[in-house]
Each structure stands twice: as C-alpha cells, then as structure tokens.
C-alpha cells in the first residue's frame, strides 16, 4: 500500500523525479522460466529488491550468458553446451517446489476420481493408448465407466519447464518411455494432439474439449477452475495421490546427504508415503564472481527467507524442504 501511495504521489510530481524513484526500486534484474514467474514477481514486488520477466528458461540462461541480466530463473539444469557458453561455472539456488497436475475432462466422469500411473500416462502421451476405455486405463480405474471415445491430448506449444518436468517424470517411471531425461519440447506422438501456448492455454484446452487430458502446473490448474478435474497419480497398484501443498512438500523430504552438491535435485516419483509423484524444484541461477552480483544475492536471500516462502501455498507452490533450504542458504553465505 505504502509503495502504491508513493508511486501515486511521484506520478503526480513529474517525470524527472520519477526516474530517481524508479532506480531506487528494482535493484537487480532477472529473467527466465515462466513456471515460477508469479512467485518471483511477487517476491520482487514485496521486497523491492529485483524485477523479473518470465520468458522461458532457455532465454533466461541466454540472457545470463550474455550478461544482460543479474540472475536467471530455470526449471532445468544447464546443458553441457550452455555450461560451456556461460564460462563453466554457475550456482543453482532452489527457490520453491511445484507440481505438474493431470487435468481430465470426460463428460459424465469426475476427473478427480481417475487414477493414472506413469506407464499409462506415457502410453496416452506417446500414442499407444488412444481411447478412454483402453484396458490399461480400465485396469486401474475399476468401477469407473469410461467411454469408447478417442482421447484428445492437450500439450504445450511453446518450449516450457512444465513440459520438461512432466516428460522427465514419464522417462523416469516408464521403462519403455521415449522421453528419457525430459525435454522442454518433447516429441508427443498421440494421434489427437492440440498444442496451446502457456499453462493457461493448456488448461483452457482441457476445460473446453470433451474427452481430453493435459498437463498443467498446479497453480494454473486451480486458477483455471480445474480442481475437480485433476486426476490422482501413483505407482502401478497405488496408492494414487492428488496434488496438494502437503503432498508436494512430502515429495521434497529427503536427507541432506542425498542431495547433489550443486543442488540440482530431482524430486519426481518420490518413494515417500503420501507424496505426489510429479514434483520439481526450480532454480535461480547466479554466475559467481561477477561484479554486479550483490543485488542478485540479496534477492535470492530474500527468496529463501521465511516471509517469502510463506506466500508460496497461496500461489499453488510449496515451500522448499528444510534440508534443501539450509543447503541453499549455506551456498549463499559461502559466497
């Protein structure tokens, strides 16, 4: 409120003075992943320490490489090529946990009551399962009457961290998957594919198309009013778990000793009881040793602080697990 008032007052005073006010705000500039963009935007706005533009993980990494931003947001670790281009060294600061949900729209069937496992999802998205009454789907959904109609598969048109997280999960849990390692632009091969830009685009596709399925990040699925359409996911034979803040948090609870030293940890297909399986963290990237790093480090320090982490459930994310947060803070102070 205070800032709003200040801006209103400054706006009235005139352009010359505005320039001064503007440079006091937004100390560091970040760009990159759109997946955590609303959290970063909120944090930057609340703290006044940074300004963030969501334009895609790869684009953010390019900006960081070309030194046009102070820090970047990314959902995926750098590829070897990207790492070489950036000079061989980059620090990963995990900032939050997010989940990719599977909304389903079948007339007469409540999506939230459906169960999927990785093998079936892999079959649907790669085209080996093409109708809703396929025996593989029926086998894990006893008692649900599924129609004999073809499945419309809604996917992302743009390259995205959400696609990366989902395809990496499929590659991990299905032995026959074509999506090993994950990709921001996976080659989906389902026969009836609809590609839409952005998470809201995919959510709209599912909401507006009968007999459809898609993958959307948790926050956007809720914001699009798809709560009742979100299916449960689990290992074959169960248990099947729906996404929730606590189910996401449970996926993140692993011992500090099991976390790689560079903090690039993969939380998908967690064996923890009650954990939702398609969970990932996202990182703020900083290149150590750059002259303008103070602003970026201050911003990341705020991201990891309790007041910042507290707002995450309201945006459809979960706070970082304590082990990971401790490690991230240690990396921050070691700098």
């Amino acid at each position: 409120m205070n800032r709003t008032l200040r801006i209103a007052a400054t706006a009235a005073v005139g352009a010359g003075m505005l320039a001064g006010a503007a440079s006091a705000l937004g100390a560091s500039t970040g760009s990159g992943a759109t997946f955590p963009a609303i959290a970063y935007t909120k944090w930057c706005g609340d703290s006044g320490l940074c300004s963030y533009t969501g334009k895609g993980s790869g684009a953010g990494i390019k900006d960081l490489t070309k030194k046009t931003v102070d820090w970047a947001g990314s959902d995926a670790p750098l590829t070897p090529d990207e790492l070489t281009a950036i000079g061989g060294r980059v620090q990963y600061f995990p900032t939050l946990l997010g989940a990719v949900t599977i909304p389903v729209n079948i007339p007469g069937v409540t999506g939230g009551k459906l169960n999927f496992d990785g093998r079936v999802l892999n079959g649907i998205f790669s085209g080996s399962i093409t109708t809703w009454n396929d025996k593989n789907i029926a086998a894990i959904n006893k008692g649900v009457k599924l129609p004999a109609r073809p499945i419309t598969v809604c996917v992302r048109a743009d390259s995205s961290g959400t696609s990366f997280v989902f395809s990496r999960y499929l590659g991990k849990v299905s032995a026959t998957s074509a999506f090993k390692g994950g990709s921001k632009t996976p080659a989906w091969t389902a026969p009836v594919l609809v590609k839409q830009p952005g998470n809201p685009g995919v959510a709209q596709c599912v909401a507006g198309t009968s007999d459809s399925i898609g993958y959307v990040d948790f926050g956007d699925a809720i914001r699009a009013g798809l709560q009742k359409n979100i299916a449960k996911v689990g290992k074959k034979g169960g248990p099947y778990v729906g996404p929730s803040t606590s189910a996401i948090t449970k996926a993140g609870q692993i011992a500090a000793a099991k976390i790689k030293s560079d903090l690039t940890v993969d939380f998908s297909a967690s064996p923890n009881v009650g954990a939702y399986p398609i969970v990932a963290t996202t990182w703020a990237l900083i290149v150590p040793g750059r002259p303008g790093n103070a602003g970026a480090l201050a911003a990341v320090k705020y991201f990891l602080s309790p007041p910042a982490q507290q707002v995450l459930p309201g945006l459809g994310f979960a706070p970082l697990p304590s082990a990971l947060r401790t490690l991230a803070n240690r990396q921050l102070s070691a700098k």
């Binding site: 759109t34 963009a37 930057c44 685009g201």
Partner: peptide, 26 residues
C-alpha cells in the same frame, strides 16, 4: 515490474502486461 522513466533501464509495456495476464497466468 516497477515504474521507470529511465530510457537506459528495462521498461514495462502494455502489450507485455496483456501477454503476462493472459498467456502466462490467467
């Protein structure tokens, strides 16, 4: 994210705001 009138700094724009509020989050 903030009001800026400095032409050597990043700056916001209306179409970008529309894009953020429709394609990125809605």
């Amino acid at each position: 994210q903030f009001l800026s009138t400095n032409i050597t700094e990043p700056i916001a724009a209306i179409p970008q705001l529309i894009y953020n509020n429709t394609i990125l989050t809605q």
